[in-house]
Design a protein around this nucleic acid. Structure first.
Length: 284
DNA sequence: GCCATAACCTGGGGGC
DNA sequence: TGCCCCCAGGTTATGG
């Protein structure tokens, strides 16, 4: 599942292989892949034609390609299974190919959006003066953004009457953290996922943010080495980092700190993985 | 206004 | 072999 580190790897790939190119043709092969573009697939295709792609940008799990000659941008979200691939034009179509973008140069490659579960998609939106697509103005900065405000995040936790993992997944408070990295950061911080956010002291918040950044940077460092060819790495499987996970998916396996078998608990229609010894259930 | 939960979607995998 | 059901989960809509 693509979370912030995976999306950043994709952004870098797009920067290398797509930015600067001029769109000639767009095929929308599945309407659901452009459902956020309310005017529909034909409109999406028509509006892109002839425009030059600017520098790829990202906030949290959203990434976008500004149109260099227009105050608008192609917004992309990979959802759970989305991939953005740069493929040779004559390569066979992927089984779940949803959108194809061709360019006017003679590099011989095209951009493909491939998505099995169609939770992701592309859409075109106007941009705010600072270049942000208007529809994601409510998405908070992510913890790797130099302008992320640690103190505002702490105050947000203190104000909320909810629990920490819910807060970490709330993209209007902090973006880019999904189920996997939430569990990883909470394990590193020795915090139970149901700890009330109102109990957080400033040092505890600071420590947790540090672990979030550490685990994301570690994933980024590994993922960043995996696209050095035409293939824009996007398989959301967190590829090489998967074997470095300490919590997620490790039910029954020994905690890497204390050896206690890790547990999995159903949580919000998904799962939370934690060490019952290191991450004690809060009282009350 | 805040918070919790259901719904969206598809294919892999386990059980029988 | 094949059918059924569970599971994965980011975001948004809805309801309390």
């Amino acid at each position: 599942m693509p979370e912030l580190p995976e999306v950043e790897v994709v952004r870098r790939g797009l920067e290398s292989w797509v930015s600067g190119r001029v769109v000639t043709e767009v095929d929308v092969l599945h309407p659901r892949a452009v459902r956020r573009h309310v005017a529909g697939g034909p409109d999406f295709a028509a509006r892109l034609k002839g425009h030059r792609i600017g520098e790829a940008r990202r906030r949290g799990k959203y990434l976008w390609l500004p149109l260099a000659d227009s105050p608008s941008a192609i917004l992309a979200h990979l959802g759970m299974s989305g991939q953005l691939l740069v493929q040779p034009e004559d390569a066979a179509d992927e089984k779940h190919l949803r959108i194809r973008v061709r360019f006017e140069d003679d590099l011989g490659t095209e951009l493909r959006f491939v998505d099995q579960r169609t939770f992701g998609g592309l859409s075109l939106h106007g941009t705010t003066p600072d270049g942000l697509p208007d529809v994601i103005a409510h998405i908070a900065r992510d913890p790797l953004d130099p302008a992320f405000d640690d103190e505002a995040f702490h105050q947000g936790l203190r104000r909320s009457r909810t629990t920490i993992k819910r807060a970490l997944l709330n993209q209007s408070l902090i973006s880019g953290v999904g189920n996997i990295y939430a569990d990883e950061a909470l394990w590193r911080a020795k915090l139970h996922y149901e700890r009330p956010t109102a109990t957080f002291t400033r040092p505890r918040t600071t420590e947790l943010l540090g672990h979030i950044r550490d685990v994301m940077n570690a994933a980024l460092a590994v993922g960043g080495t995996s696209f050095d060819s035409l293939y824009v790495n996007v398989n959301g499987e967190s590829g090489y980092f998967e074997r470095s996970l300490d919590a997620y998916g490790r039910e029954g396996e020994p905690c890497r700190r204390c050896g206690t078998p890790m547990r999995r608990r159903p949580w919000m229609n998904r799962s939370s993985y934690f060490c019952p010894r290191c991450q004690r259930v809060p009282r009350g």
